[in-house]
Design a protein around this nucleic acid. Structure first.
Lengths: 250, 250
DNA sequence: ACGTAGCGTGTAGCATGCTACTCTGCTCTT
DNA sequence: AAGAGCAGAGTAGCATGCTACACGCTACGT
């Protein structure tokens, strides 16, 4: 049992070259096991399959994922950096709960970054980028109509990411992506129940239209309004729902 | 400096983990090997002892630090996330050079966040926080006069951090800290030579005075001006100096 | 002389061994 | 009966073993 013991669980073997012959593809994504585990764990946490507050061991997570402890630990370290999990020495890894205080800070940062980033993005966007934004908006709409919440959130994230990415600041886009994960981690399900999905989608419409019109100032303002609306909604909901929680710290 | 584990941010477990009995601190810093290595490597890179563009092996770094490969690799993964190093499969770990493009993005983000954060900070500041800002300003001045560059930069960072922290958004403060590392990694020495240290310090004066006056709007504007000035200075310098260097990001 | 195939060296990535520590629950003492 | 001591299980953290791959160098073929 040297190497292939736990390999049959869908994770790709180590150095697979896609070997494109005629084309000019440099190399496919060098997806390491750590990357795959990071993705799997992030999804599991965001989707609530790993419940906040619960304690797990690296070994058990590794077994469930069908890999050894090392890549799991390496992925968990990154999640720990992002504040999604916390190591407890000799005890395990705890899935952390995003506190109200965290949500406030996160939305504050989004309010600071996203409007000016949107302003710049609109000025730089070509027809192709605008088309991508519209596509995700329509996809959100379709998903909401069919009550496919997860799909809706996926396109929501993609839409926001497309806008920020168009600003040319990839670093900001990546950071905001992480922040959105933290919000979804706590807010996705509750928000989906409090407001109709269609209302959520429609809140994006003025933003998308301003972008299509090429009106940078208006788009920035609509982004500001949209983020603020979302923040108010999520925060009001969370504050109301967790009334009896020991929240003396926050 | 950049922080170590997940202990710094406001995320907290759901159950009453802190378990405070008397008035005693829960426990001192866990101080893992990985944290120490992270700190050592960060310092080495920022101070230029690990030269950008050079290739190293995890094993050699581990040997120099006197620890095994594991904590070194785990620390490097975090640095990789921050864009300071890059893994090259079966080749080694490359110390990445902060490209001009990176600097542009970083300063752009600082321009987006720091002015509004300053605005909010001024409104929340008490006499004590204002005093801290003034203290770091005076310390910067004294250090500049004695040509103690490293000390000056330390207080520069502390000053900025104190302001942002006063906004109440610790998460933003932490993120900006990381961004400043990346700038220092490339710009510290060059800037110190191009402009007189005193000029650098004096550029903070209107900001500090606006803060002391409690004028949030003016402080925000001065912060914006200051960051922009710094950005222009660093970028102009770097663009001029490194004309034919092979940039090596990603 | 020039291109190329093949080997050797060194590496990241992954798996696994090992240790000190924490927590739980039981037993023994008072 | 109640509390203290103790042992057993389980864990993160760290160290180390192992494998497939990338790259440089050499030697061979043309």
């Amino acid at each position: 049992m040297s190497y292939g013991t736990a390999n049959g669980h869908g994770l790709r073997a180590r150095g697979e070259r896609p070997a494109r012959v005629g084309g000019l593809e440099p190399i496919a994504a060098p997806h390491t096991r750590t990357d795959q585990v990071l993705r799997a764990l992030t999804d599991a946490i965001v989707e609530g399959r790993l419940v906040p507050g619960t304690l797990h061991s690296v070994a058990s997570l590794a077994e469930q994922l069908g890999v050894s402890r090392t890549p799991v630990r390496e992925a968990l370290i990154q999640l720990s950096r992002r504040g999604m999990v916390g190591f407890e020495r000799n005890r395990g890894v705890r899935i952390l709960e995003t506190t109200i205080h965290d949500l406030e800070q996160i939305f504050e940062i989004r309010l600071w970054i996203e409007p000016p980033a949107t302003h710049q993005a609109v000025r730089r966007m070509g027809a192709r980028e605008v088309e991508v934004v519209r596509h995700h908006f329509e996809a959100m709409l379709a998903a909401a109509r069919r009550d496919r919440l997860a799909e809706m959130w996926r396109h929501d994230r993609a839409l926001h990411r497309a806008i920020i990415q168009a600003s040319g600041n990839l670093r900001a886009a990546q950071y905001l992506d992480g922040l959105r994960d933290l919000v979804l981690m706590r807010g996705a399900t509750t928000v989906g129940r409090a407001r109709s999905p269609l209302e959520i989608v429609e809140d994006h419409r003025p933003l998308v239209e301003a972008i299509e019109a090429g009106d940078a100032a208006a788009a920035a303002e609509e982004m500001r309004r949209h983020v603020r609306t979302t923040a108010d909604l999520v925060l009001a909901l969370e504050r109301g729902e967790r009334a009896g929680t020991p929240g003396g710290t926050a």
